[in-house]
Computed example of a mutant assay.
Amino acid sequence: MVTLNRIYTRTGDAGTTRLATGEAVSKAGARIAANGDVDETNACLGLARAALPAGSDLDPMLARIQNELFDLGADISTPPAEDEAPGAALRIIASQIDRLEAEIDALNAGLPALQSFILPGGTPSAAALHLARTVCRRAERAVVRLIEDGGAVNPAALRYINRLSDFLFVAARHANDQGRSEVFWRSGATR
């Protein structure tokens, strides 16, 4: 006997979805928008990983980050309660941010100093990482918007997404042959 797994549930046909808490919310709400941008960041990382050369030292980091972005989505989907017991919900934690910072520092140590703004481009993997960075910045803005609209958010979630965009910038530089294939902005060059 064959068991079918249906993808569609029809529960969202009226424009609503459910948070991890079970609360029904609009698919256009700030919390869902933030989660959508986090999901899009994750998809961009999948594209970047597919563009990496075989054996790239960035691949294990990006694979871990893709999993952490699911953690971040779960965190955003579960508004923190004031009386929340530790471990009651999947939350981004300080060690995840610390690891990103250590990786930023390690990758950045091998790069030449910046002399100009960098245009997104260079190698295919660097271009894909720059795309991921810009989508990540949008996700960060969406989380800030959620907070400004009064939505409760784990403070570590905002720190993580902010640090991730920094990581993606440095990773893109690293993927550009350690900076040798970077494309620099030339101010006013086409005037």
Rank of each mutant, 00 (worst) to 15 (best):
N35L: 07
F70I: 10
G29A: 12
A51H: 02
D39S: 10
V25H: 10
F70W: 07
C44P: 08
L72G: 01
D71G: 01
A50D: 08
P60W: 04
G55Y: 13
T41D: 02
A30F: 04
D37V: 02
R64T: 03
G22C: 11
V25G: 13
V25M: 15
L72H: 03
L58C: 04
V38R: 07
V25E: 10
S26C: 14
N67T: 09
G36E: 11
D71S: 02
A34S: 11
S56M: 08
R49V: 12
Q66H: 08
D59M: 03
L62F: 15
A43P: 08
D37F: 07
F70A: 07
P60N: 15
Q66M: 02
I32W: 04
A48L: 14
K27Y: 06
I32T: 04
G36K: 12
V38S: 09
A51M: 09
D59P: 07
L19F: 12
A34F: 02
Q66G: 03
V38T: 05
D37G: 09
S26H: 08
A50W: 09
A48G: 01
G29W: 02
A24Q: 15
D59W: 04
A30H: 07
A63F: 09
T41E: 01
L72C: 02
D71M: 07
G36W: 13
S26K: 14
G55V: 08
L72A: 02
A50E: 06
P60A: 11
G22V: 03
S56W: 13
A24W: 13
M61V: 15
T21N: 09
N35P: 05
